[in-house]
Amino acid sequence: MPVDSAIISLLKLNPSNVSSSRASSAGGSATSTSSITATLADGTEKKYFLKMGKGVEAEVMSMGEHESLTAIHNIVPTLCPQSYGHGELADTPGQFFLITDFIDFSPRSSSSPQARSQTLAHKLAKLHTTPAPTPAGYLKPQFGFSVPTCCGNTPQPNTFTSSWADFYANHRLRFIDAQSKKSNGTDKQLEEIIAQTCTILVPRLLGDKHLKHGKGVTPVVVHGDLWSGNASLGTLPRMAGPEEIVYDSSAVYAHSEYELGIMQMFGGFGREFLAEYHGLVPKTSPEEEYEDRVKLYEVFHHLNHYAMFGSAGYKRGAIRIMEDLLGRYGGSVGET
């Protein structure tokens, strides 16, 4: 299969020394994936991973994933594949691509000594304890991200915001409520409980003057869509053996515990992981509210899946969490 000239130009490859093979459609969407094998000028062989899609959604997705992987890779290079770029195909206008390192996946039983010392918990801890950079035009790090990112197929607004509580209420919960209306129609019960969650729960549990004894939290890079299907054991270039790797990122500068919402929702990481992780990244104070904060972060992912797939089970899951938390933190459905 020929490799598009835009990719050849981006990677500065000799087209006569490049071959590719199509892999599959990714995630049941219109996105397709391929591998590219190139012989470099020094005679060595290098393999790349190519993801392609059509239209504006694919353009937003490829840009967001490129910036996400770059933000993670800049802090923990062994945690994710390096992204080399994204753009529009030259030979097939209207189609967009993302090109990254190829991951050579391995079974869990084949972990290397390096993998056992640099576990996923250790790598995430490094990511989650490194303060976000200060965006141009700002005086300090902000919550948000430089571009929209896609969680699943949902393009998320990431407007820089100084308050984490404001960011989560407006750019995650209220935003996904609006997305759900577009996908599933008006739902007064859902709209009301999300509104109460934003006005009662978010300030109560995530308020800047509440967390860390009034110091608030520092924005850090999070993967943003870290369920077990986006983490595996594999080998990247310059690795001696298989290590824990993540991919398909939807990064945002956020509260580190935001990462744990989807990890808890779908499971697959377990108590051992959490014990090791929190030995390196202590729970934010007040610690007694930790589980409730993670539940509150989980709400977004239930709502996002409801917006994407329309499954009533995801809506029920979100409502159940919000009702429980509102009942314990000064509000309940129907109250204002």
Rank of each mutant, 00 (worst) to 15 (best):
G55C: 06
S32T: 15
D101Q: 14
V221D: 01
L260Q: 01
L98D: 09
D248A: 07
V217N: 03
M52F: 00
P203S: 02
A136H: 13
S32L: 11
H301C: 01
S332C: 12
E298N: 10
V147D: 09
M1V: 14
I176Y: 06
R108Y: 09
M263V: 08
P141S: 11
V147T: 15
G214L: 04
G313Y: 07
V294H: 00
Q142V: 06
S25Y: 13
L173I: 09
S68F: 07
E191G: 00
S228W: 02
P93C: 03
S29E: 03
H302K: 08
N158P: 08
S16F: 06
V252G: 00
Q114C: 05
F300K: 00
R271C: 10
I200Y: 05
G94R: 05
P203C: 02
G234H: 05
H171Y: 13
R22Q: 14
S24M: 12
T130S: 10
L205E: 03
A132G: 08
G229M: 08
G87A: 06
Y329D: 01
K283P: 00
N158Q: 07
N17A: 13
R271Y: 09
V281C: 08
N184P: 00
Q196C: 09
M239A: 12
L173W: 06
T149W: 04
P237S: 08
A58Q: 04
V220E: 04
A58S: 14
Y306H: 11
R174M: 13
T199N: 13
K209H: 11
G234S: 05
A115D: 03
A231N: 03
A254L: 04
D166N: 09
L124F: 09
I176L: 14
T159W: 05
G313F: 07
D42E: 09
